[in-house]
Design a protein around this nucleic acid. Structure first.
Length: 454
RNA sequence: GGCGCCGUGGCCAAGUGGCAAGGCAGGGGUCUGCAAAACCCCGACCGCCGGUUCGAAUCCGGCCGGCGCCUCCA
């Protein structure tokens, strides 16, 4: 398949460095200092679909997603709340993973955490110092950007352009304003680990270089994350890793566009976030995945109630087509191989999920038509379920929000069915209308009456 | 200011040189006791201007409008 590579700006064929060992994919996770929002969920779904597709095509995938469980924000937040950093991080990691599970995102092969890799980080930094790419200053260690001429190649910036906007902190003893911290000397009351430069903790970017190195190796196939990480995070990662190994770090850099919320990006700093849990409670996993997949991962999608409603209706349509009982008639003839091929071609072309989804919707329409004609649609439904699975759709009924009301609704439906059987339509319709006002939609089918929440 | 992205029917969104996918919503039908679901039918000439070409939504130039990154952020 081909994927757009941020570094070269081109669609590049995915050619695993070590095909037998599988595709090595490192996706930047999050810093667990607050509750994960739907933007994180979008990223998770995008890379989950990439991973599922690769596996469906017969690749083994080694998928690593990290947690940066020590950093400034985490320290600040933990102090403000009066809890330990470890507890705060654990709470948010747990919440995130639980939400991913609800979203039907396959667990990564490994979820490394920074605090588990301190010795490796120290060793990595020592290697950089030894090669002249880093230097110690007052207990801090900085990466010497000027020693790495290729700096800026990922984000397509030149060092001189960056210099103007570089942040200058008088407390730091950098040789150059562009240099960034690999190791930060401990301040009073901060957690720290021993190092050749005295007690301290890792800077923000070094952990990903180190964890990718130790979980996947010197060179990886795919490095991914949100577009906001291109600069400085991934730029710095490349510099650190390539300065040490002298080899290209990742073959393809994949970045998803950021989710928008009413015109602007959703971010913790703007405070305009919707938590994953809220969205899942309200619309369910398939609606969210359909929402994400209906636009290309590199085009910013805007989260809104209307968009989620539309996605929910679409997902429901797929579910019903995939699961409706097949009539016992003559088999429905469809060009299943060609449909499968169109789906595959769309996915191989830079993970074009909107086009892939369109194939599923066409398949759903064909199945529904076949069913209306009394044909046996089992084979087509099997394909629809298979392809929906590649996109990670659960095809399950969204959870009922009013679980406790269900038995009473069932009872009303039962009574109404008896009234209909007795042709007492006025009363039966009254029950249906009243339930409708309460947000319960009834559907009479030859097999009986079903209901769902509107 | 620098780097980059986007502007396609009411809403969302594919398409990057040859008669504009798909979803949602809407209208008209079929089916249904009536509904719902499902199925059938209906809707855009692609921000504006100019250029290249036999031919452009698709390439080039300019303009207008929206957005992201350049600072912690998926």
């Amino acid at each position: 398949m081909r994927l757009t590579d941020t570094l070269s700006g081109e669609k590049k064929p995915l050619l695993p460095i070590d095909p037998a060992g599988g595709v090595r994919m490192y996706v930047c996770g999050l810093t667990p200092y607050s509750r994960a929002h739907v933007g994180h969920a979008l990223k998770a779904v995008v890379f989950d679909v990439l991973r599922r597709f690769l596996e469906w095509r017969g690749h083994r995938v080694r998928h690593v997603e990290n947690f940066t469980d020590i950093d400034d924000k985490l320290i600040e937040r933990a102090n403000a709340l009066g809890v330990s950093i470890a507890d705060l991080a654990a709470e948010h990691i747990e919440d995130y993973l639980a939400n991913l599970h609800r979203l039907n995102v396959l667990p990564a092969t490994v979820y490394p955490r920074v605090t588990e890799f301190i010795p490796e980080i120290v060793a990595f930094i020592e290697g950089l110092v030894a090669r002249g790419h880093a230097y110690e200053a007052g207990g801090d260690v900085y990466f010497r950007v000027r020693s790495w001429p290729a700096y800026g190649k990922l984000s397509h910036r030149r060092i001189d352009e960056l210099k103007a906007g570089a942040r200058v902190d008088p407390l730091e003893r950098k040789e150059d304003p562009l240099d960034f911290a690999l190791w930060k000397a401990a301040k009073p009351g901060e957690p720290s680990w021993p190092s050749p430069w005295g007690p301290g903790r890792p800077g923000w970017h070094i952990e990903c270089s180190v964890m990718a190195y130790h979980t996947l190796g010197e060179q990886i196939d795919i490095h991914g994350g949100g577009a906001d990480l291109i600069f400085p995070h991934h730029e710095n990662e490349i510099a650190q890793t390539e300065a040490l190994t002298g080899k290209p770090f990742a073959s393809i850099w994949v970045h998803n566009a950021l989710l928008q919320l009413s015109g602007e990006k959703m971010s913790k700093s703007l405070g305009n976030v919707v938590s994953i849990g809220e969205a899942l409670d309200r619309w369910g996993p398939d609606a969210f995945r359909t929402f994400v997949l209906q636009s290309h991962y590199r085009t910013p999608a805007t989260f809104s109630e209307e968009a989620m409603e539309a996605a929910r209706a679409g997902a429901e349509r797929l579910r019903e087509a995939a699961l409706a009982p097949a009539p016992p008639g003559p088999p429905l003839e469809l060009p299943l191989a060609a449909l499968r091929e169109r789906f595959t071609a769309a996915m191989e072309d830079d993970l074009n999920t909107p086009r892939a989804l369109a194939v599923l919707f066409e398949l759903a329409r064909d199945i529904n038509r076949g069913r209306a004609e009394g044909r046996d649609t089992a084979a087509a439904q099997g394909l629809l379920r298979e392809l929906a699975g590649v996109l990670g759709l659960t095809l399950q009924e969204p959870p009922r929000r009013r679980q406790d009301a269900a038995p009473f609704i069932d009872l009303l439906v039962e009574v109404r069915s008896a009234l209909r059987a007795a042709k007492q339509y006025a009363l039966a319709d009254h029950i249906r209308a009243r339930l409708g006002e309460l947000g319960i939609e009834l559907q009479d089918t030859p097999e009986g009456t079903t209901w769902r929440e509107a």
